[in-house]
Design a binder for these strands. Sequence first.
DNA 1: GGAACTGTACCGATCGGTCGGTATAGTACG
DNA 2: CGTACTATACCGACCGATCGGTACAGTTCC
Lengths: 194, 194
Amino acid sequence: MSADTKDDRSQRARIVKVAARLFAERGYHAVGIAELQNAVQLGRGALYHHIRSKDDLLYDIAREYIADLNDLAVTAEHEPDPRKRICILGQHLISMIASHQAELTVCFREVQSLTDSRRAEVLALHTRYERVWKDAFISGAEQGLFRPYDPVVLKGVLGMYFYSYLWMRPDGSLGAETISERFNEMALRMLAIG
Amino acid sequence: MSADTKDDRSQRARIVKVAARLFAERGYHAVGIAELQNAVQLGRGALYHHIRSKDDLLYDIAREYIADLNDLAVTAEHEPDPRKRICILGQHLISMIASHQAELTVCFREVQSLTDSRRAEVLALHTRYERVWKDAFISGAEQGLFRPYDPVVLKGVLGMYFYSYLWMRPDGSLGAETISERFNEMALRMLAIG
DNA sequence: GGAACTGTACCGATCGGTCGGTATAGTACG
DNA sequence: CGTACTATACCGACCGATCGGTACAGTTCC
């Protein structure tokens, strides 16, 4: 039992992880508290001892992982070469999706299920993340490396990366490194001049 | 009242349309029958006179529009030039998303909410649609026009197009024609050799 | 009359969340 | 040592509200 002295945090982390998987598999509103109870093998009271509400659970998941993505993106902003910056952003994004697929699925797909103020907050983080990409595109355009900035190109490139949360399989034959390399190469093609 | 003699079909079509919009906005499980009633201004009994169940409603939406997409795709298969075929597929896809955004949002995002057998059926339609693209990619590769077939490239291209259901705005400044033209050009770049 | 359409009252089941209470471990005090 | 007290983790019964769906009577139109 000595390993369980930190029960509080580890239990909560475990609950959040299981919830993320359930929400990703079947959708936030489709998963009831009873199902979550059963999945974590805890009684009603025990579960609510660790979480405040179902909505808070969703909020924590949706917020934390887009925030992490932003943190990673900030480090990429130090790279002066827009082409390299795109590659770093792409590699981070794909590796995050590969290693936290359930959480990012919730993050991308269940924002709408948050209460108004929380949704606004999380959406702001999404916007901020997108802006990092946008800045890289504009930067490259100004340096004459990329085609002039075009929002459709931005959406297209981001769509390519983001959409991977739906088909990527962590145990599949395609590793995250392979995927990000090919996506990065394609992104640079989309941005090239002429 | 004379214009309402075809109430049966028109009412049902109206209900399906409103349901699609609600499901797209807030998610299938988040929308209750009461909310749907209120939106179509019909009592419980009247509503259930036109639909069999909530699940059937989802099934009809999710099935019909991916089936339509497949029908459109079949006509594109007659085009021998893989490059042109890609452009036709892309143009059809984007124009469908633009004109039936709510329905296709449901179609893409709520497949998981269907019962097992129905989900399998709808997923088969998705697979079939993806195969049309795949065939075009392979065709182009065989003719020496595209790079060798790579599933990652396929997923990347499809992601670019599909993801647009999340950000496209029918009343926005970007018309469907503009978007599909630029996406098509990018898709061909992604597929080009070297 | 009869078929189509509609509203209301109602069903059992399940929803998210709270309740009082228990078991256990740690700690302070005599 | 034993006893009193506190905090944490947990359980299962229970809450009002809402869920999807049904029964049925009334109305309208041919």
